[in-house]
Amino acid sequence: MTSELDPIASPSGFTPRSTGGIGLWVTPVDEVAIEARARTFTTRSIKKTSKRAALELAISCIDLTTLEGMDTPGRVSALCRKAITPDPADPSLPSTAAVCVYPSMVPSAAAFTAGSSVRVASVAGAFPSGMSSLEVRLADIRDAVAAGADEIDIVIGRGDFFTGRYGRVFDDIVAAKEACGPAHLKVILETGELGTYDQIRRASMLAMAAGADFIKTSTGKVARNATMPIALCMAEAIRDYVEQTGEIVGLKVAGGIRTAKQAWHYLVLINETLGPDWLTPDRFRIGASSLLNDALLAIRKLDTGRYSGPDYVSID
């Protein structure tokens, strides 16, 4: 048993390969205090002019997502259209960052987004459980990339993580990164299952050290999704990782973010934790579907001074 445990995976830290052996500081996290801090971001008031720009930014950071067993090319086509032109009445609005689909939908998504700025993200690696052999997971990734995915979202092996086989979790991410080739790798921690902020912090550091381009909160397939304190915990991990290694890593929050107000809160959190340099789709993503229309309604309110209704924005 012990031979399976990574000899350097001590609770206090581990030595990532990608950083040439720099020890990473996995500090403990206090639940009550981090949740109190996260609440403070929700009381910031954003300037009205800045508010519209912030909403546009939020839209441009969205990975517009459909991850259903009943997804079809028709459904994906509608999604891609919406991603490229969120509001036909206002062509000045940006496209979303990406659409996010299952691997089998990647060819459709690639076709429907061709010529636009919208990237194709694919979940892969036996999403959402990750409970397949490494070979199957890697093949899944390679398939999706070959079919045209620009970005791959995988989930860490929680079984290995919970049994302390951090080395395996690490190696799997390294292999996934390799399988991605030119595609960007987002590593989902499935924070809703990790139980504590300490574990979220540890998983964040592990994923970043193994080569993740983004770390991501959740699959959206379990009961507990992204929350402000979870995002804060991961953002702090990113900030410390970048500080120690110089490598840039992005953050993707996914699941449960449905309103423009929530999006503002996350932007404030990113702004005050990682700084304005992270307020860009290159470094910050929101995995969402219904958020987009709420953002559009909020923009209409800002522009017209009146509250709009759901019939006045298109469903995707």
């Binding site: 954003i46 800045s50 900030r239 307020l279």
Partner: peptide, 15 residues
Amino acid sequence: PVAKGQSRGFSLDYA
């Protein structure tokens, strides 16, 4: 913790 010159310039102004 960002290298200088990489700023993307988005400014989230508080009102």
